[in-house]
Amino acid sequence: MRAAVVVFPGSNCDLDTHYVLKDLLRIETELLWYRETDLKDYDLIVLPGGFAYGDYLRAGAIARFAPVVQALVEYVERGRGLVLGICNGFQILTEAGLLPGALAPNLGRKFLCKTVKLRVENAYTPLTRLCREGELIELPIAHGEGRYVAPPETLAKLKSNRQILFTYHGENPNGSLESIAGIMDETGTVFGMMPHPERNCERLLGTGDGLKLLQGMVEEVLA
């Protein structure tokens, strides 16, 4: 199995994600520059957090036209492997049309940087297969544009297809529609979440809850 973590100008947590995949989960993992277009060797591709292109215009708006994202559209169409967008990666995937809905500025107008509780809404997906349905996990968030919004027909589809993976538990920090924190696409191969699993993969950094999400993706590929 081979994994790639995409690096845009302005990415962050790319090295953390690389560390988790390579050193904690022992998967061959490469950092992939955003100009790359050859993705066929990878079974799992992660778009990390950060502020690609400075979030100019809208978060993810310019990054979605980067060569690697154009190649990613074809990668998804062919069903080559799994894709995970974390935070800015989630924003890029929605801008690229690979995930439904959009991420608008936080309702409270502030950039949020804190640990939140999440409820696992669907435990039968590659990302959540090591979680229990309804389980509460803790992950950090760090975003200014994390308010998930979608038109009513999209929300209805997300619900009927069980594409909602995580919701904020207790407080809804950014005003997201129905407290949505993470979703997947219809094919169950593209995943997006605002919280950062890679920042909580070891006991030293908290509960370590993020590890089982990335481990789930890896186990899905190896299964």
């Binding site: 708006a61 809905g101 959009a102 919004v149």
Partner: peptide, 8 residues
């Protein structure tokens, strides 16, 4: 396609 996101 680019300058506006028609969802929002």
């Amino acid at each position: 396609k680019f300058l506006a996101n028609p969802v929002i």
